[in-house]
């Protein structure tokens, strides 16, 4: 356990220090969401209808943007070699890295959600619903995105290719995340059904993500 908590603490520390990218993700999220009304127009009724979708898209893009370097930095400086060799199973190390990433880059997105809800004319209930679905759904985004980050190391290609690989994987999360928040705002479905599917997706990705990422890293060794 010391090994994993050391890894989590190190990654969070790096993300928050000078040069780390955790807070840039939040800024990106803010900017994307602020841009949306310029595209759809300042009609408040329309904005509050689109609000959950806009917030979810923003969070999806922001978490994808910051995931890019999850393994790449460790690969470039040789840390990944030592992590692979260590007595900690690679799957657990991957999970620890993803957890650290979610704590440093995912949680701030959820904290920023109420402010953005205000800008998109969402009421308290709607904002709460979106924040709750993001809380349940962003781990899934991180843990599926992690697979793409591992592939990026294997293929020596980051950035856009990773986005193309990962975005389709996150479609189910997006569907049920937005569906749950819409259900809470306008109905007619109950909030519970899509929300529990969302939680289930998160749990499944919590298991699959580390294994897939570790497998991809092992095969990409060179």
């Amino acid at each position: 356990m010391t090994a994993l908590s050391a890894l989590v603490r190190r990654d969070i520390r790096i993300a928050l220090r000078v040069g780390g990218g955790a807070l840039i993700g939040v800024l990106f999220f803010l900017t994307v969401v602020v841009l949306m009304p310029f595209a759809v127009g300042p009609d408040l009724a329309l904005l509050s209808r689109l609000g959950p979708a806009i917030l979810w898209l923003g969070a999806l893009l922001a978490s994808l943007l910051t995931l890019d370097r999850l393994f790449m930095a460790d690969h470039d400086d040789g840390s990944l070699d030592l992590i692979t060799m260590s007595r900690t199973p690679l799957e657990l190390a991957c999970a620890a890295k993803a957890l650290a990433h979610w704590l440093a880059a995912g949680l701030p997105l959820i904290v920023a959600t109420p402010v953005l809800g205000l800008l998109l004319n969402l009421d308290m209930v709607a904002t709460g619903a979106v924040a709750l679905t993001l809380l349940a759904g962003t781990p899934a985004l991180t843990f599926t995105g992690m697979i793409g980050a591992a592939l990026a190391v294997t293929l020596h290609r980051g950035g856009l290719l990773m986005a193309v690989l990962v975005l389709p994987l996150s479609i189910p999360v997006l569907i049920f995340g937005v569906a749950a928040s819409q259900a809470a705002i306008v109905g007619p479905m109950t909030f519970g059904a899509p929300f529990s599917i969302l939680c289930a997706l998160s749990l499944v990705s919590l298991v699959i993500g580390p294994f897939a990422a570790a497998a991809s890293l092992r095969h990409g060794l060179d």
Binding site: V18, G19, G21, L23, I24, L27, L30, T31, V34
Partner: peptide, 12 residues
Amino acid sequence: LMYLGLMALWRA
């Protein structure tokens, strides 16, 4: 937002 971006640049 531009202020925040500038601060992020200084920090990066």
